[in-house]
Design a protein around this nucleic acid. Sequence first.
DNA 1: GGTAGACCTGGACGC
DNA 2: GCGTCCAGGTCTACC
Length: 329
Amino acid sequence: MIVRLDVPREYLLARDVCSYGYFLLEPNHWSPDARAFRTTIDLDGRAVTVRITQGDLKQPTRSFAKLRGRPLTVHADARLSKSEGELLSTRLSRLLDLCTPASTLRDFHALDTRFKKVGRGRLMRSPTLFEDVIKTVTSCNVQWPSTIVINRRLCETLGTRSASGLHAFPTPEKLARVRPASLRARCRVGYRDARIVELARMFADGRIDPARIEDPHRSDDDLLDELLDWPGIGPYAAANILQLLRRFSRLPLDTESVRHGKAVLGFTGTPKQIMKRVHDHFLPMGAHRFRSYWFEIWSFYEQRHGPAWTWVRETTGTQFTASKLQSSA
DNA sequence: GGTAGACCTGGACGC
DNA sequence: GCGTCCAGGTCTACC
Protein backbone atom coordinates (compact mmCIF):
# COMPACT_ATOMS: atom_id res chain seq x y z
CA MET A 1 0.00 0.00 0.00
CA ILE A 2 1.39 3.40 -0.99
CA VAL A 3 0.41 6.68 0.66
CA ARG A 4 1.45 10.21 -0.25
CA LEU A 5 2.33 12.50 2.65
CA ASP A 6 2.47 16.25 2.07
CA VAL A 7 5.20 18.17 3.90
CA PRO A 8 6.01 21.84 4.63
CA ARG A 9 7.67 23.81 1.79
CA GLU A 10 11.20 23.64 3.20
CA TYR A 11 11.01 20.01 4.41
CA LEU A 12 13.94 17.82 3.37
CA LEU A 13 13.69 14.18 4.47
CA ALA A 14 17.43 13.39 4.47
CA ARG A 15 18.28 16.48 6.52
CA ASP A 16 15.26 16.57 8.82
CA VAL A 17 14.96 12.90 9.78
CA CYS A 18 18.73 12.55 10.32
CA SER A 19 18.66 15.33 12.90
CA TYR A 20 18.65 13.50 16.23
CA GLY A 21 20.29 10.31 17.50
CA TYR A 22 17.03 8.39 17.69
CA PHE A 23 17.11 7.94 13.90
CA LEU A 24 19.89 5.39 14.61
CA LEU A 25 17.83 3.44 17.17
CA GLU A 26 15.46 0.54 16.47
CA PRO A 27 12.85 0.35 15.12
CA ASN A 28 14.22 3.16 12.96
CA HIS A 29 16.59 2.59 10.08
CA TRP A 30 18.04 5.07 7.60
CA SER A 31 19.54 3.82 4.34
CA PRO A 32 22.16 6.30 3.05
CA ASP A 33 22.34 4.62 -0.37
CA ALA A 34 18.61 4.60 -1.00
CA ARG A 35 18.06 7.79 0.98
CA ALA A 36 15.12 6.01 2.52
CA PHE A 37 13.84 5.94 6.10
CA ARG A 38 12.25 2.76 7.40
CA THR A 39 10.42 2.24 10.64
CA THR A 40 7.85 -0.10 12.17
CA ILE A 41 4.92 1.39 14.03
CA ASP A 42 2.39 -0.30 16.30
CA LEU A 43 -1.12 0.75 15.25
CA ASP A 44 -2.99 -0.31 18.39
CA GLY A 45 -2.01 -3.97 18.25
CA ARG A 46 -1.00 -4.37 14.61
CA ALA A 47 2.50 -3.46 13.46
CA VAL A 48 3.16 -1.98 10.04
CA THR A 49 6.58 -1.39 8.49
CA VAL A 50 6.85 1.70 6.34
CA ARG A 51 9.55 2.83 3.93
CA ILE A 52 9.62 6.56 3.34
CA THR A 53 11.29 8.36 0.43
CA GLN A 54 11.14 11.85 -0.98
CA GLY A 55 11.05 12.64 -4.67
CA ASP A 56 11.06 10.27 -7.61
CA LEU A 57 13.53 7.43 -7.03
CA LYS A 58 13.27 6.44 -10.70
CA GLN A 59 14.69 9.82 -11.59
CA PRO A 60 17.03 10.53 -8.68
CA THR A 61 18.42 14.02 -8.39
CA ARG A 62 21.94 14.68 -7.13
CA SER A 63 20.80 17.91 -5.57
CA PHE A 64 19.01 17.64 -2.25
CA ALA A 65 17.78 21.21 -2.65
CA LYS A 66 15.54 20.16 -5.54
CA LEU A 67 13.75 17.70 -3.23
CA ARG A 68 12.81 20.38 -0.71
CA GLY A 69 9.08 20.39 -0.06
CA ARG A 70 8.36 17.44 -2.36
CA PRO A 71 5.77 15.06 -0.87
CA LEU A 72 6.91 11.89 0.84
CA THR A 73 6.06 8.48 -0.56
CA VAL A 74 5.14 6.04 2.21
CA HIS A 75 5.22 2.35 1.28
CA ALA A 76 3.40 0.28 3.92
CA ASP A 77 3.82 -3.50 4.02
CA ALA A 78 0.09 -4.08 4.57
CA ARG A 79 -3.28 -2.69 3.59
CA LEU A 80 -4.63 -0.31 6.22
CA SER A 81 -8.14 0.54 7.27
CA LYS A 82 -9.16 4.19 7.23
CA SER A 83 -8.64 4.53 10.99
CA GLU A 84 -5.27 2.77 10.81
CA GLY A 85 -4.22 5.09 7.97
CA GLU A 86 -5.17 8.13 10.03
CA LEU A 87 -3.30 6.82 13.08
CA LEU A 88 -0.23 6.09 10.94
CA SER A 89 -0.34 9.60 9.53
CA THR A 90 -0.57 11.12 13.03
CA ARG A 91 2.36 9.06 14.29
CA LEU A 92 4.54 9.78 11.25
CA SER A 93 3.78 13.48 11.57
CA ARG A 94 5.06 13.37 15.15
CA LEU A 95 8.14 11.34 14.23
CA LEU A 96 9.08 13.49 11.23
CA ASP A 97 8.33 16.76 13.06
CA LEU A 98 5.94 17.93 10.36
CA CYS A 99 3.86 19.87 12.90
CA THR A 100 6.39 22.60 13.72
CA PRO A 101 5.16 25.70 11.88
CA ALA A 102 7.46 27.43 9.35
CA SER A 103 7.07 30.63 11.40
CA THR A 104 8.75 28.91 14.38
CA LEU A 105 11.72 27.99 12.20
CA ARG A 106 11.91 31.58 10.88
CA ASP A 107 12.02 32.84 14.49
CA PHE A 108 14.82 30.40 15.27
CA HIS A 109 16.84 31.40 12.18
CA ALA A 110 16.41 35.08 13.01
CA LEU A 111 17.83 34.40 16.47
CA ASP A 112 20.60 32.00 15.41
CA THR A 113 21.54 32.85 11.81
CA ARG A 114 24.14 30.03 11.57
CA PHE A 115 21.52 27.46 10.62
CA LYS A 116 19.43 29.55 8.21
CA LYS A 117 21.40 28.66 5.08
CA VAL A 118 21.39 24.90 5.70
CA GLY A 119 17.80 25.08 6.90
CA ARG A 120 18.33 23.12 10.08
CA GLY A 121 15.53 23.51 12.60
CA ARG A 122 13.31 20.44 12.62
CA LEU A 123 14.17 17.59 15.01
CA MET A 124 12.96 14.04 14.56
CA ARG A 125 11.52 12.16 17.54
CA SER A 126 9.45 9.03 18.20
CA PRO A 127 5.92 8.32 17.01
CA THR A 128 4.68 8.31 20.64
CA LEU A 129 5.56 10.07 23.89
CA PHE A 130 5.99 6.68 25.58
CA GLU A 131 8.72 5.63 23.14
CA ASP A 132 10.47 8.98 23.62
CA VAL A 133 10.41 8.56 27.41
CA ILE A 134 11.76 4.99 27.37
CA LYS A 135 14.41 5.86 24.77
CA THR A 136 15.51 8.70 27.04
CA VAL A 137 15.82 6.33 30.02
CA THR A 138 17.83 3.89 27.89
CA SER A 139 20.30 6.67 27.06
CA CYS A 140 20.99 7.53 30.72
CA ASN A 141 24.17 6.31 32.37
CA VAL A 142 25.20 4.15 29.41
CA GLN A 143 27.38 4.77 26.42
CA TRP A 144 25.70 5.15 23.05
CA PRO A 145 26.50 1.62 21.74
CA SER A 146 24.66 0.16 24.74
CA THR A 147 21.64 2.38 24.02
CA ILE A 148 21.62 0.93 20.49
CA VAL A 149 21.69 -2.65 21.86
CA ILE A 150 18.98 -2.03 24.49
CA ASN A 151 16.57 -0.54 21.94
CA ARG A 152 17.21 -3.37 19.50
CA ARG A 153 16.47 -5.97 22.17
CA LEU A 154 13.37 -4.16 23.43
CA CYS A 155 11.93 -4.23 19.90
CA GLU A 156 13.01 -7.79 19.06
CA THR A 157 11.77 -9.34 22.30
CA LEU A 158 8.66 -7.29 23.09
CA GLY A 159 7.63 -5.42 19.96
CA THR A 160 4.73 -6.45 17.74
CA ARG A 161 5.94 -8.05 14.50
CA SER A 162 4.94 -6.65 11.12
CA ALA A 163 4.28 -8.56 7.88
CA SER A 164 7.89 -7.81 6.90
CA GLY A 165 9.15 -9.62 10.01
CA LEU A 166 10.34 -6.39 11.67
CA HIS A 167 9.33 -5.30 15.16
CA ALA A 168 7.75 -2.11 16.45
CA PHE A 169 8.75 -0.51 19.73
CA PRO A 170 6.91 -2.21 22.64
CA THR A 171 3.65 -0.66 23.78
CA PRO A 172 3.16 0.44 27.42
CA GLU A 173 0.71 -2.45 27.92
CA LYS A 174 3.27 -5.03 26.72
CA LEU A 175 6.12 -3.62 28.80
CA ALA A 176 3.87 -3.25 31.85
CA ARG A 177 3.28 -7.01 31.91
CA VAL A 178 6.97 -7.96 31.94
CA ARG A 179 8.73 -8.89 35.16
CA PRO A 180 11.67 -6.51 35.83
CA ALA A 181 14.12 -9.41 36.20
CA SER A 182 13.00 -10.80 32.84
CA LEU A 183 13.40 -7.42 31.20
CA ARG A 184 16.90 -7.13 32.63
CA ALA A 185 17.92 -10.59 31.42
CA ARG A 186 16.44 -10.25 27.92
CA CYS A 187 17.12 -6.61 27.11
CA ARG A 188 20.29 -5.74 29.05
CA VAL A 189 18.64 -2.76 30.75
CA GLY A 190 20.49 -3.40 34.04
CA TYR A 191 19.23 -1.62 37.15
CA ARG A 192 16.79 0.39 35.00
CA ASP A 193 14.50 -2.68 34.85
CA ALA A 194 12.02 -1.74 37.61
CA ARG A 195 12.00 1.92 36.57
CA ILE A 196 11.14 1.09 32.95
CA VAL A 197 8.38 -1.35 33.97
CA GLU A 198 6.92 1.18 36.42
CA LEU A 199 6.92 3.89 33.73
CA ALA A 200 5.12 1.47 31.40
CA ARG A 201 2.53 0.72 34.10
CA MET A 202 1.98 4.44 34.67
CA PHE A 203 1.30 4.94 30.94
CA ALA A 204 -0.83 1.78 30.71
CA ASP A 205 -3.11 2.55 33.68
CA GLY A 206 -3.52 6.23 32.90
CA ARG A 207 -1.46 7.74 35.70
CA ILE A 208 0.53 9.29 32.85
CA ASP A 209 -1.83 10.71 30.26
CA PRO A 210 0.04 11.75 27.07
CA ALA A 211 -2.70 14.26 26.19
CA ARG A 212 -2.19 16.04 29.50
CA ILE A 213 1.60 15.98 29.14
CA GLU A 214 1.42 17.33 25.57
CA ASP A 215 -1.09 20.05 26.52
CA PRO A 216 0.46 23.26 25.06
CA HIS A 217 -1.21 25.40 27.72
CA ARG A 218 0.96 24.03 30.54
CA SER A 219 4.08 25.92 31.54
CA ASP A 220 7.57 24.45 31.11
CA ASP A 221 8.17 24.72 34.88
CA ASP A 222 4.96 22.86 35.70
CA LEU A 223 5.80 20.06 33.27
CA LEU A 224 9.38 19.80 34.48
CA ASP A 225 8.19 19.34 38.07
CA GLU A 226 5.89 16.50 37.00
CA LEU A 227 8.54 14.76 34.88
CA LEU A 228 11.01 14.83 37.80
CA ASP A 229 8.54 12.77 39.86
CA TRP A 230 8.59 9.90 37.34
CA PRO A 231 10.83 6.90 38.13
CA GLY A 232 14.22 7.00 36.43
CA ILE A 233 13.78 10.62 35.39
CA GLY A 234 16.32 13.10 36.79
CA PRO A 235 17.33 16.60 35.65
CA TYR A 236 18.97 15.44 32.38
CA ALA A 237 16.15 13.09 31.34
CA ALA A 238 13.43 15.61 32.25
CA ALA A 239 15.05 18.34 30.16
CA ASN A 240 15.46 15.91 27.27
CA ILE A 241 11.80 14.87 27.45
CA LEU A 242 10.88 18.56 27.42
CA GLN A 243 12.70 19.08 24.11
CA LEU A 244 10.99 15.94 22.74
CA LEU A 245 7.73 17.69 23.70
CA ARG A 246 8.93 20.61 21.50
CA ARG A 247 9.76 22.80 24.48
CA PHE A 248 13.28 24.06 23.88
CA SER A 249 13.85 26.38 26.83
CA ARG A 250 15.87 23.84 28.88
CA LEU A 251 19.17 22.09 28.11
CA PRO A 252 19.70 18.41 28.99
CA LEU A 253 23.21 18.87 30.33
CA ASP A 254 25.41 15.79 30.56
CA THR A 255 29.01 14.71 30.00
CA GLU A 256 28.56 15.46 26.30
CA SER A 257 27.77 19.08 27.23
CA VAL A 258 31.02 19.22 29.19
CA ARG A 259 32.99 17.79 26.27
CA HIS A 260 31.38 20.32 23.93
CA GLY A 261 31.97 23.19 26.37
CA LYS A 262 35.66 22.35 26.57
CA ALA A 263 36.42 21.29 22.99
CA VAL A 264 34.27 23.71 21.01
CA LEU A 265 33.43 26.63 23.28
CA GLY A 266 36.85 26.73 24.99
CA PHE A 267 35.49 26.69 28.54
CA THR A 268 37.72 25.61 31.43
CA GLY A 269 37.11 24.53 35.02
CA THR A 270 35.47 21.61 36.78
CA PRO A 271 32.71 19.69 34.95
CA LYS A 272 30.14 21.45 37.13
CA GLN A 273 31.56 24.87 36.29
CA ILE A 274 31.65 24.06 32.57
CA MET A 275 28.01 22.90 32.63
CA LYS A 276 27.06 26.24 34.24
CA ARG A 277 28.93 28.13 31.52
CA VAL A 278 27.26 26.09 28.76
CA HIS A 279 23.91 26.81 30.41
CA ASP A 280 24.65 30.54 30.54
CA HIS A 281 26.09 30.60 27.00
CA PHE A 282 22.76 29.58 25.44
CA LEU A 283 20.52 31.75 27.67
CA PRO A 284 20.15 34.46 24.95
CA MET A 285 18.49 31.87 22.70
CA GLY A 286 15.41 31.91 24.95
CA ALA A 287 12.68 29.57 23.72
CA HIS A 288 15.08 28.17 21.06
CA ARG A 289 17.93 27.30 23.41
CA PHE A 290 17.92 23.57 22.79
CA ARG A 291 17.74 23.96 18.99
CA SER A 292 20.76 26.24 19.03
CA TYR A 293 22.69 23.99 21.44
CA TRP A 294 21.79 20.78 19.65
CA PHE A 295 22.55 21.88 16.10
CA GLU A 296 25.89 23.29 17.28
CA ILE A 297 26.75 19.82 18.65
CA TRP A 298 25.28 18.11 15.57
CA SER A 299 27.47 20.30 13.31
CA PHE A 300 30.49 19.18 15.33
CA TYR A 301 29.58 15.53 14.69
CA GLU A 302 29.05 16.21 10.99
CA GLN A 303 32.44 17.95 10.70
CA ARG A 304 34.07 14.73 11.90
CA HIS A 305 31.88 12.07 10.33
CA GLY A 306 30.29 13.73 7.30
CA PRO A 307 26.63 14.66 6.83
CA ALA A 308 24.33 12.74 9.16
CA TRP A 309 22.42 11.28 6.21
CA THR A 310 25.59 9.32 5.27
CA TRP A 311 25.95 7.72 8.72
CA VAL A 312 25.52 3.98 9.13
CA ARG A 313 24.32 2.74 12.54
CA GLU A 314 26.78 -0.16 12.77
CA THR A 315 29.85 2.01 12.05
CA THR A 316 29.51 5.79 12.34
CA GLY A 317 26.49 5.41 14.58
CA THR A 318 28.51 3.81 17.37
CA GLN A 319 31.10 6.60 17.53
CA PHE A 320 29.17 9.09 19.62
CA THR A 321 30.56 8.66 23.09
CA ALA A 322 32.17 11.50 25.00
CA SER A 323 35.47 9.62 25.30
CA LYS A 324 35.75 8.87 21.56
CA LEU A 325 34.78 12.41 20.60
CA GLN A 326 37.17 13.77 23.22
CA SER A 327 40.08 11.90 21.70
CA SER A 328 39.24 13.05 18.17
CA ALA A 329 38.57 16.70 19.09
C1' DG B 1 20.85 21.76 50.13
C1' DG B 2 24.97 19.35 48.95
C1' DT B 3 27.59 15.13 48.35
C1' DA B 4 29.28 10.25 48.32
C1' DG B 5 28.48 5.83 46.87
C1' DA B 6 25.72 2.17 44.72
C1' DC B 7 23.46 0.71 40.67
C1' DC B 8 24.67 -2.34 35.70
C1' DT B 9 26.73 -3.05 31.29
C1' DG B 10 30.21 -3.16 27.90
C1' DG B 11 34.58 -1.64 26.21
C1' DA B 12 39.52 -0.91 27.03
C1' DC B 13 43.49 -2.52 28.97
C1' DG B 14 47.03 -5.40 31.21
C1' DC B 15 48.53 -9.85 32.23
C1' DG C 1 40.73 -15.82 28.26
C1' DC C 2 40.36 -13.61 32.56
C1' DG C 3 40.35 -9.83 35.90
C1' DT C 4 40.24 -4.94 36.71
C1' DC C 5 39.06 -0.33 35.77
C1' DC C 6 36.19 3.17 33.87
C1' DA C 7 32.16 5.87 31.82
C1' DG C 8 27.49 7.12 32.08
C1' DG C 9 22.69 9.71 35.01
C1' DT C 10 19.61 8.62 38.87
C1' DC C 11 18.57 7.49 43.49
C1' DT C 12 19.22 7.17 48.40
C1' DA C 13 21.45 7.84 52.69
C1' DC C 14 23.91 10.82 55.22
C1' DC C 15 25.88 15.21 56.87
